[in-house]
Write a protein that binds this DNA or RNA. Structure first.
Lengths: 159, 159
DNA sequence: CGTTTCTTGACGTTTCTTGACCAACTGGCT
DNA sequence: AGCCAGTTGGTCAAGAAACGTCAAGAAACG
């Protein structure tokens, strides 16, 4: 039913939550064996699910006693999280990327569902006006979108 | 005589009401098959009926094990209350009036602090872009502002 | 009768899975 | 120290499985 990737993702999350540890270490080969898949599947899970924009850092080492270490990025001050977010957003962002980012923030409990709804409606309106009213190019619209998104998120002073 | 779109819309609504679940997950292909239509018909239903402006959030994933998830964030209020809101805002609204209205909604506990912040920042951004980017007249800016405000509040189904 | 909404299908993109091949590190043996 | 074998993890590309977009034509509406 649920995909292999999602199962592995959930398993790693459960490891991280266990004892509230900020990081886990594991063997790629063992994990692959545990899930009955090829080792490179693990890389796919890490590449797609444990990215910096989702708040994770991954380190690894090859050879004997090799390992993969997955750590949650922690922020001491709210400002650090905002800086991190602004870096991820950049000066231009597509609607698709926005959706992914918002989904992620919501899943992490950083945004409530109503807040996310407001963000989506505001961004859609902005984009609609830019397109049909001002006839802006997609690129400029994505710039405006990035600006608005950054400003909205900053206003919440995410903690 | 009910159209295909309406049938599918009703079906999704019934899924949402079932068990009072806030969200449902489904396969586009299966649903299309169930209604004997082409898969992209489902996209049309979602695009036209389950928008953020109507209080829904839709997420999806392509590829193997893909899915479409529909979440109902807000519930519709009686039409008269929504009409009342639209009446108060009208087609043009000044920043000053906006502030009063938002303060009022916040005091009545209809908006949280953070939600109000989001509304204010979105409105201000919109206004700023309209002024400095496109040199719109104050009147037209107040029109855009009224549009955006109505859409934002309607999405939350407040009054 | 013109405009909006709906329906369909061709084509496009993203995500997932697998496997072949590559790169880096360890330890032991000269 | 230097090399070699063994042990790990990394990369990449191909193929399959979903979902998305877009535009043309039909239907419904006012």
């Amino acid at each position: 039913m649920s995909s292999l990737t999602r199962s592995i993702e959930k398993y790693i999350h459960s490891l991280l939550e266990e004892e509230d540890s900020p990081a886990v270490s594991l063997r790629r080969k063992d994990l692959a064996e545990q899930f009955g898949c090829v080792p490179s599947q693990i890389n796919y899970v890490l590449r797609s699910r444990f990215t910096p924009e989702k708040g994770f850092l991954v380190e690894s080492q090859r050879g004997g006693h090799g390992f993969i270490r997955i750590a949650r990025i922690t922020f001491r001050r709210p400002q650090e999280r905002i800086d991190h977010l602004e870096e991820i957003i950049g000066t231009v962002i597509s609607s698709q990327e926005v959706k992914r980012l918002l989904t992620n923030l919501q899943e992490r409990g950083i945004l409530s569902d109503r807040e996310r709804l407001l963000l989506e409606v505001a961004l859609r309106f902005q984009d609609e006006v830019a397109e049909t009213y001002f006839d802006l190019s997609p690129y400029k619209r994505d710039m405006l979108q990035a600006d608005l998104l950054k400003r909205l998120l900053r206003s919440l002073a995410l903690s």
